[in-house]
């Protein structure tokens, strides 16, 4: 057992963080709201680092790293609020090499039950839509999707579309691959959320350490300190859970059918989603009036967290999954 980052993993995170600071500074990415404004060159730079193909074999252009390494990188991408279809890129690169290299963008969506509308993120940006259902993975051309954009998206840096129905498309992956995508999608999304949970407290601590009221910095008041300490603890717990889940799916019996992996992945989903949302709210509160402004950054973390928590398995669904593992083996 060893559940702590090693020097290579810290270096990997540092290099991704440095790339994000150069190519995805928040003051720029917050205006990347559509196809015209989205910086595809920055995206390709991120792809060229191997971000989306980390876990693929060397033959396939990957770095043969573990899921946990991908999770560590996605924690940084979450922390830096990198826009774009990040998780979809890591999944779709299994099937489409050009997605891995950043030349093409893809979005992944679960096919809703009959008659229910589908939520597609980044539809106007992507070159391919991949639809998951019980039978497998289906490739659909974006132009064939009858969808309308949401005019005031909750997360201003994640454009979303509503489609009344999705075309069947061409089958490009089997049900087993779809199940693995859901599992990896859950872990990587949880990693984005854990990254938000960590970063947003750093942002709030930095603010509390310099903002003065009553003649002293507000970070000296227990009412503020305790909010931040709670946030720090939530983030520590969340990233430990996410790393453990990622490790679990790489170890023997860690496939989508394994109970231990299912529980670890679902549990991380619950904890990371809550940490990201709660910590973002803490950051807005600590920023006071500034936190309530559009110009300040904390609301961007909260809105991203709100959006990401409902992608793939939602926290409610995940909690139910965890509960069911507690009584596994008993009659239903």
């Amino acid at each position: 057992m060893r559940l702590e980052l090693d020097d290579d993993q810290r270096a990997l995170q540092a290099s991704v963080r440095a790339l994000c600071a150069e190519h995805f500074p928040l003051e720029r990415t917050r205006t990347w709201t559509d196809r015209d404004s989205f910086d595809r060159r920055a995206w390709r730079t991120l792809a060229e680092l191997g971000t989306f193909v980390m876990t693929r074999s060397a033959d396939e252009g990957g770095a043969e790293l573990a899921t946990v390494d991908a999770g560590l990188v996605y924690q940084v991408l979450g922390a830096e609020l990198v826009p774009g279809p990040l998780v979809a890129a890591a999944l779709a690169s299994d099937l489409i090499d050009e997605v891995g290299t950043g030349q093409l963008l893809a979005t992944v969506v679960e096919r809703p039950a009959d008659g229910q509308p589908a939520v597609l993120r980044h539809l106007g940006l992507v070159d391919v839509v991949l639809v998951l259902d019980a039978a497998g993975i289906w490739r659909v051309e974006p132009a064939d999707v009858d969808a309308r954009p949401v005019t005031s998206p909750l997360d201003p840096t994640t454009p979303v579309w509503l489609a009344t129905r999705l075309p069947q498309g061409e089958r490009v992956g089997d049900a087993a691959l779809a199940a693995r995508w859901r599992q990896r999608g859950d872990v990587l999304t949880s990693a984005l959320l854990a990254g938000i949970a960590v970063k947003v407290i750093e942002v709030a601590v930095a603010y509390a350490a310099q903002r003065e009221q009553f003649g002293r910095v507000i970070g000296g008041f227990q009412a503020v300190k305790h909010l931040l300490a709670d946030g720090f603890a939530r983030a520590e717990v969340a990233r430990a859970a996410v790393d453990a889940a990622a490790v679990t799916i790489d170890e023997p019996g860690g496939g989508p059918d394994g109970t231990a992996a299912a529980r670890a992945v679902a549990g991380a989903r619950v904890v990371a989603a809550r940490a990201a949302v709660a910590n973002s709210k803490t950051a807005i509160q600590v920023h006071g009036g500034m936190g309530f402004t559009w110009e300040a950054t904390p609301h961007l973390y909260l809105k991203r967290a709100w959006l990401e928590e409902n992608v793939f398995t939602t926290p409610d669904e995940a909690a139910e999954l965890v509960a069911r593992t507690l009584t596994a083996g008993e009659a239903a």
């Binding site: 717990v237 859970a241 670890a264 549990g267 619950v270 995940a318 909690a319 999954l321 965890v322 507690l326």
Partner: peptide, 11 residues
């Protein structure tokens, strides 16, 4: 609720 608290303890 039970699943959420179990997830917290697992974490």
């Amino acid at each position: 609720d039970i699943g959420t608290v179990a997830a917290e303890l697992d974490a």
